[in-house]
């Protein structure tokens, strides 16, 4: 929970259990529908495709029949030390709100893409095209997230609007919007996953499942030695999967790159 961007009482985070993910893609589809991510007729040129959530395929690198496969869903890591925030010349992306969600404000963005270059997780996407839906399909857009035009960068925001809605619901019900129970605010991908691979909650709150899971001996974060301090954790009982989370030298012990977090 260290970081140059302040201490937060609430730290929204995710723990993704890679032993449970079977790579079906439900999270990716649910994310697009929830966040009005533009569709593309040809989505096979991956450099031009926008994926707030992307499921990567991991291989243990061995030949048949010793081959193993794992799937790794990748949202924005909402780093404790986000490199994107430091490089943004327009204050488009900040980590300035309780909860520690790294924001992205589309009307401010002029598309320089420094943030994309700086993000070690490739979690940011540039809109090469204006979003176009076939006639009528725009009526099925979600009301919660604005539609982004061509020329701006976009990314996962942990379904931030759902948090705002959960807080408003709590306010109307006379409850404390700062003490939301875990189920009050869940991201679209978390809910959609039929395998329960994604757990979402406040990493600082011992009553939230993520708090315990993030401390599991099997938990790790991607590219930890960069010091980005992601708020997204992964876990796997398989050592080769944990090793895939960073660039290990042959003689380095798995987990040796871990930056002990101080929560």
């Amino acid at each position: 929970m260290s970081g140059h961007y302040g201490q937060f009482d609430i730290r929204w985070g995710m723990v993704i259990d890679l032993d449970k993910c079977t790579g079906c893609g439900a999270c990716m589809v649910a994310c697009q529908a929830e966040n009005n991510v533009a569709i593309q007729t040809d989505a096979s040129n991956k450099r031009l495709v926008t994926n707030w959530m992307l499921v990567f395929e991991l291989s243990n690198g061995k030949s048949f029949p010793d081959h193993e496969v794992a799937y790794l869903p990748r949202p924005c890591m909402h780093c404790g030390n986000p490199s994107c925030v430091a490089v943004c010349p327009a204050t488009v992306t900040t980590k300035d709100e309780e909860g520690g969600i790294v924001s992205q404000i589309y009307p401010r963005c002029f598309g320089c893409r420094y943030c994309m270059a700086s993000c070690p997780y490739h979690a940011r996407y540039f809109n090469w095209y204006d979003p176009v839906w076939p006639e009528g399909m725009e009526k099925t857009l979600s009301p919660d997230v604005s539609v982004r035009p061509r020329g701006v960068v976009e990314k996962c925001h942990f379904c931030h609007h759902r948090w705002m809605q959960a807080k408003d619901k709590a306010r109307v019900a006379g409850e404390d919007p700062k003490a939301l129970p875990q189920e009050a605010y869940q991201t679209a991908c978390t809910q959609a996953c039929p395998n329960g691979a994604i757990t979402f909650g406040d990493l600082n709150n011992p009553e939230h499942t993520v708090h315990e899971l993030a401390h599991s001996e099997y938990a790790f974060r991607l590219l930890e030695r960069l010091g980005t301090e992601p708020q997204v954790y992964y876990m796997s009982r398989r050592e080769w999967v944990r090793r895939a989370g960073d660039n290990y030298l042959a003689d380095e012990k798995t987990g040796s790159v871990k930056n002990e977090h101080h929560s």
């Binding site: 204050t91 900040t94 300035d96 709100e97 309780e98 969600i101 924001s103 992205q104 404000i105 589309y106 009307p107 401010r108 919660d144 997230v145 604005s146 925001h157 931030h160 609007h161 705002m164 807080k167 306010r171 919007p177 700062k178």
Partner: peptide, 13 residues
Amino acid sequence: VTRANNGCQVCHK
């Protein structure tokens, strides 16, 4: 009810 917050995403979606 809440603390004032000038975080960008407090008011933007």
